[in-house]
Design a protein around this nucleic acid. Structure first.
Lengths: 140, 140
DNA sequence: TTGTATGCAAACATTTTGCAGCGTG
DNA sequence: CACGCTGCAAAATGTTTGCATACAA
């Protein structure tokens, strides 16, 4: 493992562009969105290069993959701090949040299952402030 | 919304077969796996019918979709009780578990984000007992 | 009978891979 | 100057859809 945001392998303009775009993006973009933004910075980059670089970054733990409940596409999150997400069930916006699950819960799961637990993914679901304004709160 | 495990629309042999396979499956099968099992019960069923029926069941909240960290395929879970999952990072086995996130945590997330929170997905990651036997526990 | 459900195949959407040539180290 | 990286296009993967026919209600 190496420092977050560092690239393994060669230092090319394409890889630097992908990493830079990711660092500036806080909206959990898809590979296609990242590609579009990279093209704005460095025209001519191929989609395959973006995919390959993303895979590289995921394997190197420099970015996180995000698979939402009803989407097939993979989203990417360059926030390497331990954190969770809240997804709006109407507009789909994804917001970072910090919501530590108590150790007692994790310990209980380990005891019940016999698993050696190394981490978890926690994704809240709901209605964002903007959609509450436009559609009202979630019906009770 | 209708009773869990009930089908909307017409009552056909194909739909009954898909539902029956799902009720007997506790290993969170993919659509392809479900299709294979359905063929064992009712030969000739097309993949599209399985996909359409699964979509119907998901929309009717009779089954849950499961998207794992590093898989593109969708898995299905007919357990409609509120529950969470533990995934083995080596063999990929998925086990159901009950691990309630404290209301205080959810409330704090709502306060911080302004979201109206309606639920969450919690997925633990780790090493299953069998893989611990074969590979040892996760390195500290 | 009437319209929904099915099976097939083609269309789609997304990601991965093969390959010839370019460029970093 | 060797080998990894790139861009393009084709392949692979997984899911959805169009259409003619079959069948539940």
């Amino acid at each position: 493992v190496r420092a977050a945001g560092t690239l393994a392998g060669r230092d090319t303009a394409q890889r630097r562009a992908v990493l830079e775009v990711l660092r500036r993006s806080f909206d959990h973009p898809t590979a296609a969105e990242i590609h579009a933004r990279v093209l704005g910075v460095l025209p001519g980059v191929g989609a395959a290069t973006v995919y390959r670089t993303l895979r590289l970054l995921v394997d190197g733990a420099a970015v996180q993959e995000l698979r939402l409940r009803d989407e097939t596409v993979i989203r990417y999150d360059a926030n390497t701090h331990l954190h969770d997400h809240v997804v709006c069930e109407i507009c789909g916006v994804v917001v970072d949040v910090h919501a530590q699950v108590p150790d007692t819960v994790t310990t209980a799961v380990a005891r019940h299952t016999g698993f050696d637990i190394t981490g978890y993914d926690l994704r809240f679901r709901g209605r964002c402030p903007s959609c509450i304004s436009n559609h009202g709160p979630h019906p009770a």
